[in-house]
Protein backbone atom coordinates (compact mmCIF):
# COMPACT_ATOMS: atom_id res chain seq x y z
CA UNK A 1 0.00 0.00 0.00
CA UNK A 2 1.47 3.31 -1.00
CA UNK A 3 1.14 6.25 1.35
CA UNK A 4 -1.95 8.29 0.61
CA UNK A 5 -3.71 11.30 1.97
CA UNK A 6 -7.22 11.09 3.31
CA UNK A 7 -10.11 13.40 3.86
CA UNK A 8 -13.71 13.08 4.98
CA UNK A 9 -16.14 14.69 2.61
CA UNK A 10 -19.02 16.70 4.05
CA UNK A 11 -21.18 17.11 0.97
CA UNK A 12 -21.59 15.16 -2.28
CA UNK A 13 -20.58 18.13 -4.41
CA UNK A 14 -17.64 18.78 -2.11
CA UNK A 15 -16.56 15.17 -2.47
CA UNK A 16 -16.75 15.40 -6.25
CA UNK A 17 -14.77 18.61 -6.43
CA UNK A 18 -12.19 17.22 -4.02
CA UNK A 19 -11.82 14.18 -6.23
CA UNK A 20 -11.30 16.33 -9.28
CA UNK A 21 -8.54 18.27 -7.53
CA UNK A 22 -6.24 15.26 -7.11
CA UNK A 23 -5.49 13.09 -10.10
CA UNK A 24 -6.15 9.45 -9.28
CA UNK A 25 -8.12 10.17 -6.11
CA UNK A 26 -10.66 7.53 -5.13
CA UNK A 27 -13.81 7.63 -3.09
CA UNK A 28 -13.98 5.11 -0.31
CA UNK A 29 -17.13 3.79 1.32
CA UNK A 30 -17.21 0.13 2.42
CA UNK A 31 -13.73 -0.50 1.07
CA UNK A 32 -14.42 -4.19 0.53
CA UNK A 33 -12.77 -4.14 -2.88
CA UNK A 34 -10.63 -0.99 -2.91
CA UNK A 35 -8.61 -1.79 0.21
CA UNK A 36 -7.69 -5.24 -1.11
CA UNK A 37 -6.60 -3.69 -4.37
CA UNK A 38 -4.54 -1.05 -2.60
CA UNK A 39 -2.75 -3.65 -0.49
CA UNK A 40 -1.74 -5.42 -3.68
CA UNK A 41 -0.87 -2.08 -5.35
CA UNK A 42 -3.34 -2.78 -8.12
CA UNK A 43 -4.91 0.52 -7.11
CA UNK A 44 -2.51 3.18 -5.90
CA UNK A 45 -4.61 6.26 -5.23
CA UNK A 46 -2.61 9.14 -3.78
CA UNK A 47 -5.72 10.47 -2.05
CA UNK A 48 -8.83 8.90 -0.54
CA UNK A 49 -12.06 10.76 -0.02
CA UNK A 50 -14.20 9.08 2.60
CA UNK A 51 -17.84 9.49 1.65
CA UNK A 52 -19.31 7.57 4.58
CA UNK A 53 -20.37 10.79 6.29
CA UNK A 54 -22.53 12.03 3.43
CA UNK A 55 -25.80 10.45 4.46
CA UNK A 56 -27.02 8.98 1.18
CA UNK A 57 -27.98 5.92 3.17
CA UNK A 58 -31.75 5.93 2.89
CA UNK A 59 -34.23 4.33 0.53
CA UNK A 60 -37.05 6.66 -0.41
CA UNK A 61 -40.10 6.47 -2.60
CA UNK A 62 -39.98 8.57 -5.75
CA UNK A 63 -42.83 10.59 -7.16
CA UNK A 64 -42.91 8.23 -10.13
CA UNK A 65 -43.69 5.31 -7.84
CA UNK A 66 -40.20 3.88 -7.75
CA UNK A 67 -37.41 3.92 -5.18
CA UNK A 68 -34.37 6.12 -4.78
CA UNK A 69 -31.60 4.08 -3.16
CA UNK A 70 -28.89 6.16 -1.56
CA UNK A 71 -25.39 5.40 -2.80
CA UNK A 72 -24.30 4.38 0.70
CA UNK A 73 -27.14 1.98 1.46
CA UNK A 74 -25.46 -1.28 2.35
CA UNK A 75 -26.10 -4.39 0.31
CA UNK A 76 -27.52 -6.00 3.45
CA UNK A 77 -29.98 -3.18 4.10
CA UNK A 78 -31.02 -2.99 0.48
CA UNK A 79 -31.70 -6.71 0.26
CA UNK A 80 -33.72 -6.59 3.49
CA UNK A 81 -35.86 -3.56 2.62
CA UNK A 82 -39.53 -4.55 2.60
CA UNK A 83 -40.33 -2.53 -0.53
CA UNK A 84 -37.40 -4.06 -2.37
CA UNK A 85 -38.37 -7.52 -1.32
CA UNK A 86 -41.98 -7.01 -2.34
CA UNK A 87 -41.63 -5.12 -5.61
CA UNK A 88 -38.05 -5.76 -6.77
CA UNK A 89 -37.46 -9.34 -5.75
CA UNK A 90 -34.89 -9.71 -8.49
CA UNK A 91 -32.70 -7.11 -6.83
CA UNK A 92 -32.99 -8.64 -3.36
CA UNK A 93 -32.19 -12.11 -4.70
CA UNK A 94 -29.24 -10.91 -6.75
CA UNK A 95 -27.79 -9.13 -3.73
CA UNK A 96 -28.14 -12.16 -1.52
CA UNK A 97 -26.47 -14.35 -4.13
CA UNK A 98 -23.33 -12.25 -3.85
CA UNK A 99 -20.41 -12.19 -1.45
CA UNK A 100 -20.99 -13.11 2.20
CA UNK A 101 -23.05 -11.65 4.99
CA UNK A 102 -20.03 -9.85 6.40
CA UNK A 103 -19.11 -8.29 3.08
CA UNK A 104 -22.71 -7.28 2.34
CA UNK A 105 -22.79 -5.47 5.65
CA UNK A 106 -19.94 -3.25 4.52
CA UNK A 107 -20.48 -3.08 0.77
CA UNK A 108 -22.53 -0.17 -0.57
CA UNK A 109 -24.84 0.26 -3.53
CA UNK A 110 -22.48 2.56 -5.42
CA UNK A 111 -19.41 0.56 -4.47
CA UNK A 112 -21.00 -2.61 -5.76
CA UNK A 113 -21.49 -0.97 -9.17
CA UNK A 114 -17.87 0.18 -9.19
CA UNK A 115 -16.16 -3.03 -8.11
CA UNK A 116 -13.34 -4.21 -10.34
CA UNK A 117 -13.05 -7.45 -12.25
CA UNK A 118 -11.86 -10.65 -10.59
CA UNK A 119 -9.76 -11.80 -13.54
CA UNK A 120 -6.79 -13.58 -11.89
CA UNK A 121 -4.30 -11.85 -14.17
CA UNK A 122 -5.66 -8.46 -13.08
CA UNK A 123 -4.84 -9.51 -9.52
CA UNK A 124 -1.24 -10.54 -10.24
CA UNK A 125 0.81 -7.39 -10.70
CA UNK A 126 3.63 -9.39 -12.29
CA UNK A 127 1.39 -10.18 -15.26
CA UNK A 128 0.53 -7.83 -18.09
CA UNK A 129 -3.01 -6.45 -17.88
CA UNK A 130 -4.38 -3.63 -19.97
CA UNK A 131 -6.95 -2.88 -17.35
CA UNK A 132 -4.42 -2.52 -14.55
CA UNK A 133 -1.65 -1.03 -16.65
CA UNK A 134 -2.91 0.31 -19.96
CA UNK A 135 -0.89 -0.85 -22.92
CA UNK A 136 0.89 -3.68 -21.07
CA UNK A 137 -1.03 -6.42 -22.84
CA UNK A 138 -3.46 -9.09 -21.70
CA UNK A 139 -2.07 -12.22 -20.08
CA UNK A 140 -5.51 -13.78 -19.99
CA UNK A 141 -5.75 -14.06 -23.76
CA UNK A 142 -4.34 -17.48 -24.45
CA UNK A 143 -4.23 -18.21 -20.71
CA UNK A 144 -6.73 -19.30 -18.08
CA UNK A 145 -10.07 -17.95 -19.25
CA UNK A 146 -12.69 -20.28 -17.80
CA UNK A 147 -14.25 -17.51 -15.71
CA UNK A 148 -13.86 -14.75 -18.27
CA UNK A 149 -16.08 -13.03 -20.79
CA UNK A 150 -17.61 -14.55 -23.89
CA UNK A 151 -19.24 -11.51 -25.49
CA UNK A 152 -18.28 -7.90 -25.93
CA UNK A 153 -14.67 -8.83 -25.28
CA UNK A 154 -11.83 -7.21 -27.17
CA UNK A 155 -8.27 -7.87 -28.24
CA UNK A 156 -7.27 -5.94 -25.14
CA UNK A 157 -9.40 -7.54 -22.42
CA UNK A 158 -11.59 -10.56 -21.62
CA UNK A 159 -12.64 -9.44 -18.15
CA UNK A 160 -16.15 -9.68 -16.74
CA UNK A 161 -17.95 -7.41 -14.34
CA UNK A 162 -18.43 -9.46 -11.20
CA UNK A 163 -21.53 -7.84 -9.70
CA UNK A 164 -24.78 -9.70 -9.18
CA UNK A 165 -26.62 -6.55 -8.12
CA UNK A 166 -25.79 -4.80 -11.38
CA UNK A 167 -27.44 -7.59 -13.36
CA UNK A 168 -30.68 -6.97 -11.51
CA UNK A 169 -30.40 -3.22 -11.94
CA UNK A 170 -29.86 -3.69 -15.66
CA UNK A 171 -33.00 -5.80 -15.96
CA UNK A 172 -34.91 -3.26 -13.88
CA UNK A 173 -33.72 -0.34 -16.03
CA UNK A 174 -32.38 1.54 -13.05
CA UNK A 175 -30.89 5.00 -13.33
CA UNK A 176 -27.64 6.06 -11.73
CA UNK A 177 -27.71 9.58 -10.25
CA UNK A 178 -24.48 11.47 -9.85
CA UNK A 179 -22.99 14.78 -8.97
CA UNK A 180 -20.09 16.20 -10.95
CA UNK A 181 -17.17 18.24 -9.65
CA UNK A 182 -18.85 21.44 -10.83
CA UNK A 183 -21.81 20.61 -8.65
CA UNK A 184 -24.20 19.70 -11.45
CA UNK A 185 -26.22 16.52 -11.17
CA UNK A 186 -27.02 14.07 -13.91
CA UNK A 187 -28.79 10.77 -14.36
CA UNK A 188 -27.30 7.91 -16.36
CA UNK A 189 -29.34 4.94 -17.53
CA UNK A 190 -27.76 1.77 -16.17
CA UNK A 191 -27.47 0.55 -19.76
CA UNK A 192 -24.97 3.33 -20.45
CA UNK A 193 -23.19 3.20 -17.12
CA UNK A 194 -20.75 0.30 -17.65
CA UNK A 195 -18.62 0.21 -20.79
CA UNK A 196 -17.27 -2.54 -22.97
CA UNK A 197 -13.49 -2.89 -22.82
CA UNK A 198 -12.62 -1.96 -26.39
CA UNK A 199 -9.05 -0.77 -26.43
CA UNK A 200 -9.46 1.11 -23.14
CA UNK A 201 -10.42 -1.59 -20.65
CA UNK A 202 -9.16 0.55 -17.77
CA UNK A 203 -12.11 2.89 -18.36
CA UNK A 204 -14.97 0.89 -16.97
CA UNK A 205 -17.84 3.34 -16.57
CA UNK A 206 -19.25 6.48 -18.09
CA UNK A 207 -18.38 8.48 -14.97
CA UNK A 208 -16.27 11.55 -15.53
CA UNK A 209 -13.20 12.17 -13.37
CA UNK A 210 -14.41 13.10 -9.91
CA UNK A 211 -18.06 12.29 -10.60
CA UNK A 212 -19.75 10.77 -7.55
CA UNK A 213 -22.71 8.40 -7.53
CA UNK A 214 -25.34 9.71 -5.16
CA UNK A 215 -28.23 7.31 -5.74
CA UNK A 216 -29.64 4.53 -7.84
CA UNK A 217 -33.25 5.03 -8.88
CA UNK A 218 -35.60 2.19 -9.61
CA UNK A 219 -38.56 2.86 -11.86
CA UNK A 220 -42.00 1.94 -10.66
CA UNK A 221 -42.51 -1.78 -10.05
CA UNK A 222 -42.92 -3.98 -13.09
CA UNK A 223 -44.76 -6.84 -11.47
CA UNK A 224 -44.14 -10.29 -12.89
CA UNK A 225 -42.02 -13.12 -11.59
CA UNK A 226 -38.57 -12.11 -10.43
CA UNK A 227 -35.94 -14.82 -10.68
CA UNK A 228 -32.17 -14.67 -10.20
CA UNK A 229 -30.20 -17.82 -10.95
CA UNK A 230 -26.52 -17.72 -10.21
CA UNK A 231 -24.52 -20.69 -11.45
CA UNK A 232 -21.21 -21.41 -9.76
CA UNK A 233 -18.85 -24.20 -8.80
CA UNK A 234 -19.50 -23.98 -5.09
CA UNK A 235 -22.78 -23.33 -3.38
CA UNK A 236 -21.94 -19.93 -1.91
CA UNK A 237 -19.28 -17.25 -1.80
CA UNK A 238 -18.16 -17.57 -5.39
CA UNK A 239 -18.48 -15.38 -8.44
CA UNK A 240 -20.92 -16.41 -11.13
CA UNK A 241 -19.85 -18.58 -14.00
CA UNK A 242 -23.09 -17.33 -15.47
CA UNK A 243 -26.08 -15.68 -13.88
CA UNK A 244 -29.53 -14.99 -15.27
CA UNK A 245 -31.75 -12.24 -13.92
CA UNK A 246 -35.27 -12.34 -15.30
CA UNK A 247 -38.59 -10.61 -14.86
CA UNK A 248 -41.29 -12.60 -16.57
CA UNK A 249 -44.86 -11.41 -16.97
CA UNK A 250 -47.89 -13.65 -16.96
CA UNK A 251 -48.32 -13.17 -20.72
CA UNK A 252 -44.85 -14.66 -21.25
CA UNK A 253 -43.16 -11.41 -22.10
CA UNK A 254 -40.28 -10.28 -19.98
CA UNK A 255 -36.77 -9.04 -19.51
CA UNK A 256 -33.52 -10.91 -19.16
CA UNK A 257 -30.04 -9.79 -18.15
CA UNK A 258 -26.91 -11.89 -17.76
CA UNK A 259 -23.95 -11.82 -15.43
CA UNK A 260 -20.59 -13.51 -15.78
CA UNK A 261 -20.43 -13.20 -19.56
CA UNK A 262 -19.26 -9.68 -20.31
CA UNK A 263 -17.48 -6.56 -19.14
CA UNK A 264 -20.89 -5.24 -18.09
CA UNK A 265 -24.21 -6.70 -17.09
CA UNK A 266 -25.44 -8.05 -20.39
CA UNK A 267 -28.86 -7.27 -21.75
CA UNK A 268 -30.09 -7.05 -25.32
CA UNK A 269 -33.61 -5.65 -25.34
CA UNK A 270 -34.26 -6.97 -28.84
CA UNK A 271 -33.60 -10.51 -27.67
CA UNK A 272 -36.55 -10.25 -25.30
CA UNK A 273 -38.82 -10.16 -28.33
CA UNK A 274 -37.81 -13.78 -28.93
CA UNK A 275 -39.42 -14.85 -25.68
CA UNK A 276 -42.37 -16.57 -27.41
CA UNK A 277 -39.91 -18.76 -29.29
CA UNK A 278 -38.29 -19.99 -26.13
CA UNK A 279 -35.01 -19.91 -24.30
CA UNK A 280 -32.92 -21.05 -27.24
CA UNK A 281 -34.07 -18.18 -29.37
CA UNK A 282 -33.62 -15.63 -26.59
CA UNK A 283 -30.17 -16.92 -25.68
CA UNK A 284 -29.18 -16.99 -29.33
CA UNK A 285 -30.14 -13.36 -29.76
CA UNK A 286 -28.56 -12.35 -26.45
CA UNK A 287 -25.25 -13.94 -27.28
CA UNK A 288 -25.17 -13.31 -31.03
CA UNK A 289 -21.60 -12.46 -31.93
CA UNK A 290 -20.16 -14.10 -28.83
CA UNK A 291 -16.49 -15.03 -29.10
CA UNK A 292 -15.84 -17.51 -26.34
CA UNK A 293 -12.51 -19.21 -25.77
CA UNK A 294 -12.13 -22.97 -25.85
CA UNK A 295 -12.19 -22.94 -22.03
CA UNK A 296 -15.30 -20.85 -21.58
CA UNK A 297 -17.38 -21.91 -24.57
CA UNK A 298 -19.49 -23.88 -22.10
CA UNK A 299 -20.94 -20.56 -20.94
CA UNK A 300 -22.92 -20.34 -24.19
CA UNK A 301 -24.60 -23.66 -23.47
CA UNK A 302 -24.91 -22.77 -19.82
CA UNK A 303 -26.73 -19.52 -20.54
CA UNK A 304 -29.25 -21.25 -22.75
CA UNK A 305 -29.88 -24.06 -20.30
CA UNK A 306 -30.08 -21.76 -17.29
CA UNK A 307 -32.40 -19.41 -19.12
CA UNK A 308 -34.61 -22.34 -20.08
CA UNK A 309 -34.78 -23.36 -16.43
CA UNK A 310 -35.60 -19.81 -15.39
CA UNK A 311 -38.38 -19.50 -17.96
CA UNK A 312 -39.68 -22.87 -16.89
CA UNK A 313 -39.72 -21.77 -13.28
CA UNK A 314 -41.49 -18.54 -14.23
CA UNK A 315 -44.24 -20.49 -15.95
CA UNK A 316 -44.58 -22.96 -13.08
Amino acid sequence: MRPFTYERATSPAGAASAAARTQGARFIAGGTNLLDLMKLQIETPPHLIDVNGLGLDTIEATEEGGLRIGALVSNTDLAADARVRQDYGLLARALLAGASGQLRNKATTAGNLLQRTRCPYFYDTAQPCNKRQPGSGCAAIGGFTRQLGVIGTSEACLATHPSDMAVALRALDATVETVRPDGTARALPIADFHRLPGDTPHIETALEPGELITAVVLPKPLGGRHIYRKVRDRASYAFALVSVGAIIQSDGSGRVALGGVAHKPWRVEAAEGEMPRGAGAVAGALLAGARPTRENAFKITLVERTLAAVLNEARG
Partner: peptide
Protein backbone atom coordinates in the same frame (compact mmCIF):
# COMPACT_ATOMS: atom_id res chain seq x y z
CA UNK B 1 -2.83 -18.66 -11.81
CA UNK B 2 -5.54 -18.83 -9.17
CA UNK B 3 -3.15 -18.18 -6.31
CA UNK B 4 -5.48 -16.79 -3.67
CA UNK B 5 -8.54 -18.00 -1.79
CA UNK B 6 -10.90 -16.23 -4.19
CA UNK B 7 -9.49 -18.12 -7.15
CA UNK B 8 -8.72 -21.44 -5.44
CA UNK B 9 -12.14 -22.49 -4.23
CA UNK B 10 -12.48 -24.82 -1.28
CA UNK B 11 -15.84 -25.94 0.09
CA UNK B 12 -17.89 -23.53 2.16
CA UNK B 13 -20.54 -24.51 4.70
CA UNK B 14 -23.26 -24.51 2.08
CA UNK B 15 -21.42 -27.23 0.17
Amino acid sequence: VNHDLAGYEVPVHAD
